[in-house]
Computed example of a mutant assay.
Amino acid sequence: MTNTITIVTAVHGPSIPYLADAYASLAAQELPPDWTWQWTVQEDGETGDVAAALPDDSRISVGTGSKGGPGVARNLAMSRAEGSILRVLDADDQITPGALARDVTVLAENPAIGWTTASVLDLMPDGTTVGWEHADPPEGRLQAGAVLSYFTENKYRLPVHPATLCIRTELAMALGGWMALPGGEDTGLLIAASVVSDGYFIAKPGLLYRKHPAQLTSQPGWSGTAEWMTRMRVIEARGEALQRLGAHYQG
């Protein structure tokens, strides 16, 4: 029996030129013998330009839909997921060698763990890489509730990077997927998952996080604004509500 990990990618126009590098990073992955990957790519729009930019590979599933932002696009991509595990990959980023195998191994060997994240290297415009600006936690298990506590106690900063989230498909579906927000939707899913399930942090870098002028998180007003604060508060409130309800992933 072959198991599948589904890679979920939302794409808007400015990210299309980076898809070739994202695909190359996937094609280079070496998975355990009984695993394969599927890439569900969703255009945030209906131009068809994304499909035209992708190679002919039976492992790729491409969709289009009404513009709604990355959260909506990822949820539409998730509807085509064939895997028991989902790994998010932004269109302008690259998965590092061995990262998928590390994700798969942790989740396969630990049924009670619902999700993983990994260390990140920023990929600069000149091709060099630098470490993430925040200190990573030690490798190992992250107890349910710990990420939310850090988030609320540190002015809505995260201890782990949401762009590396790998989550059991059943858990992501139960949580409603990515939040319907104009930004921070990946933080919303990470926080929700971290409340109802233990996670695991992998110290080896799992992602090259590309820095470029067109990326959404580099735009003026991305953080520190009234809207950003509203997004963070609703993410926090959702996590706290799940805690009060006593929701817990059983594995």
Rank of each mutant, 00 (worst) to 15 (best):
L100A: 05
D49F: 06
V104I: 14
L107H: 01
G131P: 10
P111Q: 03
S79H: 11
G114N: 04
V106G: 10
G48A: 07
D57A: 15
Q42E: 12
E133Y: 15
I95M: 11
L148T: 06
T47R: 02
S84D: 08
S149E: 13
S119Q: 02
V120K: 04
W132N: 13
G114S: 11
L100M: 13
L148R: 02
A163I: 02
E82W: 02
T164P: 04
P97F: 12
A163W: 11
G145S: 07
L76Y: 13
G48R: 07
A81C: 02
G127E: 01
L123H: 06
G68I: 11
G131K: 07
G48K: 11
A91T: 00
I60D: 06
D93Y: 00
D57F: 14
Y156W: 14
Y150D: 04
R102V: 03
N154W: 06
E109A: 12
A52H: 03
A99Q: 06
W132C: 01
G98H: 03
P137E: 10
P55Y: 05
A135T: 14
S119F: 02
V62D: 00
A99C: 12
A144P: 01
G71H: 11
R80C: 10
P125C: 06
T64F: 09
G131A: 14
V160G: 01
G131Y: 05
L54T: 11
H134K: 13
L100V: 01
I95P: 03
A146Q: 15
N154H: 15
V147I: 15
V120W: 00
T164A: 04
A51L: 10
M78I: 13
K155Q: 15
G45N: 07
D90I: 06
L107Q: 01
V88F: 00
A135V: 14
L123R: 09
P138H: 14
G65Q: 10
T116V: 15
A77G: 07
D92K: 01
K155Y: 13
H161D: 11
G131F: 11
P70Q: 05
P111R: 10
P70D: 13
G114Q: 03
G71T: 09
G45E: 10
L86P: 09
G71D: 08
P125N: 09
Y156F: 15
P125Y: 08
S66D: 11
T96D: 02
A52C: 12
G69R: 02
T64E: 14
A112D: 15
Q42C: 14
G131W: 08
L100P: 00
A73Q: 09
L86T: 01
E139K: 03
D92Q: 04
R141L: 15
P162T: 03
G68D: 02
D103Q: 14
A118W: 04
G83M: 04
A163Q: 12
A52P: 06
D57Y: 08
E109N: 09
G140N: 00
L89R: 07
A112G: 08
V120P: 13
V106D: 05
W115Q: 04
Y150V: 00
R102D: 08
A101F: 00
L158P: 02
G69I: 00
V41Q: 07
L89K: 05
V160L: 03
